[in-house]
């Protein structure tokens, strides 16, 4: 009975943690999905915009408080994104997607250095606002802070709002149409260039919003972009390029998989018994003894490679690139 209780506790808590982490991933990758699906640009600087959001959030919180920062910082980041699109990407567009991607690659380098020039390289003291600094509820004597629930709520609101805008509004229809038939949309008299600029701005603003929110929960420092960048690509490619629900599902899957991988402490050795290797440590014995928890963070990459080989359009995508 005690044993069953512990298993139940583990499952409930891991699911909760998994959902919370997954929603954070979605918050981060929603902007990237919007940009990628619209413009086909793999924005390597997306995580840098997220970092900018966190640092703007930190600075504005210091000056005018968290809630104004919560609104202003994403707008600032969005404005920067629009400038980047207007004066950078638009000029590069004619040279193809590789050139665009490399532009954002260089941008990521520059932004990281600029951020560390201004705010230094040590983590800054960016705190959860006092209004949300209390445990929301307790399950199995584990507290869940209100701030995490707030993050979850924001993610869900963004998901629903984006979905509504894309599916139900005129703007969304143009965006959807430009996704598949950019020339046609252009011929119909829409300014595709401006649509792109706005889309890139909105995507960047979403990254900025993620930064403002995730900054206090994680560590706000100048290498936070580099450590989170690649996993975002995994999410959007895994979910399917251009599919918002796909990114949502992929975020949840990756969040849950990672969390449960940590919770399950198994290794091949614990399942099949210790390896009978006479020759001391070898590559096989290394693999044999490694626990699932140890490899948890590389599981997403494994999933990515597998899904791309099996289903190149991703989980819920409709086209390949």
């Amino acid at each position: 009975m005690v044993h069953e209780c512990a298993v139940l506790e583990l499952i409930v808590i891991s699911s909760l943690n998994g959902v919370l982490f997954g929603m954070l991933l979605f918050l981060l990758s929603s902007g990237l999905t919007v940009i990628f699906s619209m413009m086909g640009v793999l924005n390597f600087a997306h995580a840098s915009f997220y970092m900018l959001g966190a640092f703007f959030g930190f600075q504005l919180t210091k000056w005018i408080g968290f809630w104004p920062a919560f609104v202003l910082a994403p707008l600032l980041v969005g404005a920067i994104g629009m400038v980047v699109e207007r004066y950078g990407l638009r000029n590069t567009h004619k040279h193809g997607h590789v050139a665009e991607l490399l532009l954002t690659f260089g941008l990521a380098f520059a932004i990281e250095e600029i951020v560390s020039m201004i705010w230094g390289r040590s983590p800054v003291d960016y705190r959860v606002p006092a209004l949300l600094d209390f445990p929301a509820f307790t399950i199995f004597s584990t507290n869940y802070p209100a701030y995490k629930i707030f993050m979850l709520a924001v993610s869900v609101v963004i998901f629903v709002a984006l979905l509504l805008v894309l599916k139900r509004t005129r703007v969304g229809l143009i965006v959807q149409a430009a996704l598949t038939h950019p020339h046609m949309v252009g011929h119909l008299g829409h300014n595709v260039g401006r649509v792109f600029m706005v889309v890139f701005g909105v995507g960047s603003a979403l990254a900025g919003l993620a930064g403002v929110i995730a900054g206090p929960a994680l560590v706000t420092q100048s290498d936070m972009a580099a450590s989170l960048g690649p996993i975002l690509f995994v999410v959007i490619v895994f979910g399917g390029l251009g599919s918002l629900p796909g990114a949502f599902v992929a975020s949840l899957v990756i969040g849950l998989v990672q969390t449960f991988a940590v919770a399950l402490n198994g290794s091949l050795a614990s399942v099949f018994g210790p390896l009978d290797s006479p020759g001391g440590p070898s590559a096989l014995s290394d693999i044999w003894n490694v626990t699932i928890a140890q490899v948890a963070p590389i599981i997403p990459y494994l999933l990515l490679v597998i899904i791309l080989i099996v289903r190149p359009m991703g989980l819920m995508g409709t086209r390949e690139s």
């Binding site: 583990l10 808590i13 891991s14 943690n17 998994g18 919370l20 982490f21 954070l24 584990t142 994680l218 450590s227 989170l228 990672q258 969390t259 940590v262 919770a263 402490n265 948890a296 963070p297």
Partner: peptide, 10 residues
């Protein structure tokens, strides 16, 4: 690791 809560749960 960006989220240590599963470890804390353990």
């Amino acid at each position: 690791v960006t989220d240590f809560s599963p470890y804390i749960a353990k």
